[in-house]
């Protein structure tokens, strides 16, 4: 055991004041930076644990979207016959399933995260935002594995990415931000109302139907396009197909509306989460 030299020199460097908080609480994003290593460790834990004690392990990351692709390709190609802008249907669907999978998993994980980590919340202090944040980030590894498969499929179909491929990271960030924004609301509500756990599956199911995963956004009539754009995932999915497969570019207005909605969800989510934060340890 080390001696007194382990004591930091400036004893009063950190003074913490504890008092009841009232009204609006500052977001304190600086504190998230201080705790960045914890974000890393919790994300790492989620990834590490995800496929433990499964026979197929990380293969599930690939199998899930592949199975989805086969099912959706069959239903929408052979039965519903919706347009794909002349792109081979399997890759048309798979390209959309990637950002969609990233988003829906991040949303569901974030929504459940506060309850799943309740033992930590009631014992140790850290900025609670870290919990939904790290569960959103945990999906990225699966996404990268799936992305490698997508590249393989593009080789097979001899599709070269367009020059718009630079915008891909932006769409990834947009889908994560959307997931985090709504995930923050859901996770805070879930502490108060366990109903959220039951709502989540329906929410993601319905959300997928109003996102152009299995069909092209073109099929939505023009008068509904604005309403449709309120779903930020429309811009993300269209953007993916545009950047990688050379489909028609997403409408600028759609993208602008999506971004605004995402920002609103994210900021209001953080504010609400911070407001509820003080009661989490007592309620969870």
């Amino acid at each position: 055991m080390s001696n007194t030299k382990a004591l930091p020199a400036k004893l009063n460097s950190e003074t913490i004041v504890l008092r009841p908080s009232r009204g609006w609480i500052p977001l304190n994003l600086h504190e998230l930076w201080v705790f960045r290593e914890l974000i890393y460790f919790l994300t790492w834990r989620d990834i590490k644990v995800r496929y433990k004690q499964t026979v197929l392990g990380a293969a599930w990351a690939i199998l899930q979207p592949l199975i989805n692709m086969v099912v959706l390709t069959f239903i929408f190609g052979n039965l519903a016959k919706l347009s794909t802008d002349n792109i081979p249907r399997p890759i048309f669907t798979f390209t959309a399933l990637l950002p969609w999978g990233l988003f829906s998993k991040a949303l569901a994980d974030a929504g459940r995260s506060m309850l799943a980590n309740r033992s930590m919340i009631t014992k140790v202090y850290f900025p609670r935002l870290i919990i939904p944040l790290s569960s959103v980030l945990g999906g990225l590894v699966d996404f990268f594995i799936q992305f490698a498969i997508l590249l393989g499929m593009m080789l097979y179909y001899r599709i070269t990415p367009t020059s718009a491929v630079w915008s891909l990271p932006l769409f990834v960030v947009l889908s994560l931000a959307t997931a985090l924004g709504f995930g923050l609301w859901l996770s805070a509500l879930n502490v108060l109302y366990r109903d959220v756990g039951y709502i989540l599956p329906f929410l993601t199911q319905i959300w997928m139907l109003v996102t152009p995963v299995a069909y092209s956004a073109k099929v939505v009539p023009a008068e509904y396009q604005f309403l449709y754009a309120l779903n930020p995932m429309v811009g993300v999915v269209e953007g993916f197909r545009w950047a990688l497969l050379g489909a028609r570019p997403p409408d600028a207005l759609t993208l602008a509306v999506s971004t605004v909605i995402t920002m609103i969800a994210l900021i209001s989510g953080m504010v609400y989460f911070r407001r509820m934060e003080r009661t989490f340890a007592d309620m969870v």
């Binding site: 950190e14 003074t15 913490i16 004041v17 504890l18 008092r19 919340i121 014992k123 140790v124």
Partner: peptide
């Protein structure tokens, strides 16, 4: 700092480590 006080005030000078239960997390 796991939970907030409902009234009153406290100040703490220095980094706090808590062992409310070992093996948290």
């Amino acid at each position: 700092r796991v939970t907030e006080p409902s009234e009153g005030y406290a100040e703490i000078h220095g980094r706090v480590g808590s062992l409310l239960e070992v093996g948290t997390g």
